[in-house]
Design a protein around this nucleic acid. Structure first.
Length: 901
RNA sequence: GGGUUCUUAGCUCAGUUGGUUCAGAGCACCUGCCUUACAAGCAGGGGGUCGCAGGUUCGAAUCCUGCAGAACCCA
């Protein structure tokens, strides 16, 4: 078998992914013999494409699930997609516009037909992309939030929560996107960090009694026409006399009261606040406190309506009116001045339109009561957030939770199951089906003749999160008739085999940005319907940023295309690159160099494999002592590595775990072990060493497989004959066998230091590596060095290791290893002055060190207060330093240097 | 404005309840090598008064206070 000099991921990745699918390696079903380990994927937008955030997030999930699978757990990773109501609808509307079709020309049914076509065309691309990454999902379980069953579940939950009294319909100040013509949740409104430059208009309002005027400041002069009061701070002496009087609204001359309210900030603008309850949330609150009239002057598209009272403004967009009104105020002599200020302007996350606070009838979920257990669960670590710092953030949000506006003025989504039978605000019923609705409506209205055709279903759909918050339950069909108890509004988990086995899931891996949107709400739903947490751990990943620390975004164009990255560096390389610098919860400053490092790592392993596979094996030969030491040592190191990995995984320190393996493979295995046992060119290797080496290789591949699934499968299959369908995905994950032989590791470390010292001397004196040199060691541990002599000779290219000192006249370069003196015999003359200088420098350092330790030990309070073990360590440090100093002094004396002690 | 978190080498980060040879890693950097697995490589090396100022302690990167700066969340 001929292996290429360089690893080529493109040749193997698709092959193995297909193999895994063909052999159903990723499918999972309840298995009482095994421990369940389930992850539900955070469903990406069905029509979205893979971005770097997905890459990170799904790499992490795949590492966790693959490791669990190898550990013999029933590993189930449930994939799926989200309908992403507003984002998808916006895309469909744009597509239609490009075809010259306006959404409003279409009926709801026609529009939805286009939307489903769009979904069929682009839906699921992202799942195919995940396969490129190696994601080991159970694809047969793929779910979509608008699948029939899922749709029914969402509607069922709406009805249930309505019955339980958690859902109400109310007039509320909501964030209105005039472009998409929909309400937005607070989370969907974004503010530019640096704010935006706005004009602050100072406007004069005459007093009704003609005794003067009052000046207010506003950034939204078009809302003047909806003013119903002017407010001042009760403590503001400047205006105390005005309170109780009336002012006249410009143009319409409506008299409005001047009131006192604590909300007013005396230092902002003029200290007089115009109050527009219909168009500002704070003003709305003030209006409630003072029973002010509410005048709504905006249409749903952001244009002004008749209520504004000025004919020429009617039908014009608010920003156009702003310009007009500024001009008109100036002409009327009411504009005092205009200044520029920076303020925060809310914009729609999806359309970018300036969000207008708007009063409207919307559907809400009361959050306070229903979220109680979800708050407790995290407080008590029943649901454990990783990293834990998010607990504080979570608590703060949950303690101040506000009612959740769940209606959206869109068509793509789950249509609200409320049916209206009359014009009154309460003339509606909520039901899962039209038949039930008719029955309920007859009852509620007292009209037994009502027909389905008399009912109008609510036009709005539900917020996407109001479907995805059911994800960990709905993917297992938990809300189906057989399992859902309509009376109690609870799920009988024990009746549903999947739910019973896989729920609660093990860990949710997601971005901190959606901690409240989604994570908190899933926890709420979990307790509401199953009285149980939906997952044990929440691993919050960082946000992927570019190397300048900016968020990756389409508009900046700073996001690399994941598929191209994988084509260039291999999926394994990219996975490694993503994980290298992403400790949990810390942002990841993505740099392509990290993927390059991942690719290089794959190549390193590939070549190590080529080396081992290229050996000819000498059957019947015994293992030489040198190799016995090397294999024992590597085994000991491997034990410490496995132990470290277990600990790192337990704490979700994936980047550390990967680095542990990276260093073990590159340094310990390749640079040290393979070099130790590698036969001379053309020579065979003894069979026991060869077998041990392949066994190590096998174990290393299994440890690495969760991180780099493709190359490990490729090499593992090459390593030995495998059965048909056999895969490393299901090979046992290496377990800690025994306590590592730390004595052996320490001994080897000493030898490695010795080898490094010799190499160092060579590098400094520019002695070619080819020249094999004799080494003398003056030590009282001769047996130890003798045992390792063969290894040291090979690794440092020494002609021999002798004990004692070189003969007079032999040129030797001295160095000190721990407390032993070493002499590397070289040809040619030696610059003794330089050697002395080097030794003196070292001596200086150790004398200083010794002094500081002595100082510590002579401090009575230290000796008394510090734990005995710490004091003991200091004593040991002192003894070691003294031995070292003695050795250095001796070397110096030999060079003819007088020591002043 | 309120809250949370953070500030350690040129860069990205570890540093576990304060206590091992005067703070570690990876990358980058410097020097020498195309040595028959790998130049996507090998060997060696330099680099930090742990944001600043106080305090507690025998002992502080680690605990406390203040200041400066950054990020995120909420308003």
């Amino acid at each position: 078998m001929e292996l290429a000099k360089k690893y080529n991921p493109a040749e193997v990745e698709d092959k193995w992914y297909r193999y895994w699918l063909e052999n159903k390696v990723f499918s999972a079903k309840p298995n009482p013999e095994k421990e369940p380990y389930c992850i539900v994927i955070p469903p990406p937008n069905v029509t979205g494409v893979l971005h770097m955030g997905h890459m990170l997030n799904n790499t992490i999930q795949d590492v966790l699930i693959r490791r669990a699978r190898m550990q013999g757990k029933e590993a189930c990773w449930v994939p799926g997609t989200d309908h992403a109501s507003i984002a998808t609808e916006a895309k469909v509307v744009r597509m239609l516009r490009e075809r010259g079709i306006s959404k409003h020309e279409l009926s709801r049914e026609e529009f939805l037909k286009y939307a489903w076509e769009w979904k069929e065309k682009y839906g699921g691309i992202i799942l195919e992309q995940l396969k490129k990454l190696g994601a080991s999902c159970d694809w047969d379980r793929t779910r979509f939030t608008m699948d029939d069953k899922y749709y029914k579940a969402v509607i069922r939950v709406f009805v249930d929560l309505y019955k339980k009294g958690y859902i109400y319909r109310g007039l509320r100040m909501i964030n209105w996107d005039p472009e998409a013509k929909t309400a937005l949740s607070n989370e969907e409104v974004i503010y530019k960090e640096e704010g935006e430059i706005s004009k602050l208009y100072h406007v004069r309002y005459p007093l009704a009694d003609g005794s003067g005027h009052v000046v207010i400041a506003t950034t939204r002069p078009e809302t003047i026409l909806a003013d119903t009061a002017i407010a001042v701070n009760p403590n503001d002496e400047r205006y105390a006399a005005l309170v109780g009087k009336q002012a006249l609204v410009p143009f319409v001359n409506r008299p409005i009261p001047i009131i006192a309210d604590d909300y007013v900030d005396t230092s902002f603008g003029t200290g007089c606040l115009k109050v527009t309850p219909a168009h500002d949330p704070n003003d709305y609150e003030i209006g409630l406190r003072h029973q002010l009239e509410v005048i709504d002057i905006l249409n749903e598209d952001g244009s002004l309506n008749e209520a504004c009272g000025v004919e020429k403004y009617v039908g014009k967009d608010r920003f156009e009116v702003r310009k007009m009104i500024a001009k008109d105020l100036e002409e009327a002599g009411l504009l005092v001045k205009v200044e520029e200020i920076t303020n925060k302007v809310g914009r729609s996350e999806r359309t970018g339109a300036v969000v207008e606070p708007r009063l409207s009838l919307q559907w809400f979920i009361k959050m306070k009561e229903i979220s109680k257990r979800a708050l407790e669960a995290v407080e008590k670590d029943e649901v454990q957030l990783v990293p834990a710092k998010f607990k504080n953030i979570y608590r703060h949000w949950m303690e101040n939770v506000r009612d959740w506006c769940i209606s959206r003025q869109l068509w793509w989504g789950h249509r609200i199951p409320a049916y209206y039978y009359g014009e009154g605000e309460n003339d509606f019923v909520v039901a899962e089906t039209i038949e039930e609705a008719v029955a309920l409506a007859r009852e509620k209205s007292g009209n037994p003749h009502l027909q389905a055709s008399d009912l109008r279903q609510d036009e709005d759909v539900l917020d996407t999160w109001a479907s995805s918050w059911l994800w960990p339950i709905a993917v297992f069909d938990g809300f189906e008739d057989e399992y859902f108890d309509k009376e109690k509004g609870k799920i009988h988990k024990e009746k549903n085999a999947d739910l019973n086995y896989f729920y609660p899931t093990k860990v949710l891996v997601t971005a901190p940005e959606i901690l409240f949107f989604w994570v908190a709400r899933m926890i709420i739903a979990g307790y509401e319907y199953l009285d149980e947490r939906p997952f044990e751990h929440v691993y919050l990943t960082g946000i992927v940023r570019d190397k300048l620390g900016r968020k990756m975004s389409k508009s900046l164009g700073n996001s690399p295309d994941p598929l191209e990255l994988m084509a260039q560096y291999g999926a394994d390389g990219v996975r490694v690159g993503m994980l290298f610098s992403s400790p949990a919860g810390n942002d990841l400053l993505f740099d392509e160099k990290l993927c390059e490092q991942g690719r290089n790592f794959a190549n390193k392993i590939w070549n190590a494999f080529r080396l081992v596979k290229g050996w000819t094996v000498e059957a019947g030969a015994a293992m030489p002592a040198r190799n016995r030491l090397a294999t024992d040592w590597l085994r000991a190191r491997l034990e410490t590595v496995k132990q470290a990995l277990d600990e790192q995984f337990a704490q979700y320190r994936l980047s550390e775990a990967l680095m542990t393996l990276y260093k073990f493979i590159w340094d310990d295995f390749c640079s040290w072990y393979l070099e130790m046992v590698k036969p001379a060119f053309g020579q065979p290797i003894d069979a026991p060493t060869y077998e041990q080496t392949t066994a190590f290789f096998d174990e290393i591949l299994r440890l690495l497989h969760p991180f780099m699934p493709f190359i490990t499968e490729e090499l593992w299959q090459h390593l030995s004959e495998r059965r048909n369908g056999e895969t490393i995905c299901q090979a046992p994950y290496p377990q800690v066998q025994a306590a590592a032989d730390t004595g052996l590791i320490e001994e080897m470390e000493r030898m490695m230091e010795l080898i490094a010292q010799v190499r160092n001397v060579r590098a400094e004196r520019q002695i070619p590596n080819k020249d094999s040199l004799p080494l003398f060691i003056k030590t009282n541990r001769q047996a130890l060095y003798e045992r390792y002599a063969e290894i040291v000779k090979k690794m440092a290219n020494l002609a021999e290791i002798a004990f004692g000192e070189p003969a007079e006249g032999q040129n030797a370069i001295p160095f000190v290893l721990k407390e032993d003196e070493c002499f590397l015999v070289v040809e040619g003359s030696v610059d003794t002055e330089q050697l002395k200088a080097d030794l003196l420098k070292e001596l200086d350092y150790y004398r200083g060190f010794k002094q500081s330790v002595e100082k510590k030990l002579s401090n009575e309070r230290f000796v008394q207060n510090a734990p005995a073990a710490v004091v003991e360590k200091e004593r040991k440090k002192l003894a070691d330093a003294e031995a070292k100093i003695a050795a250095i002094e001796e070397s110096l004396a030999k060079l003819g240097h007088a020591i002043d002690k």
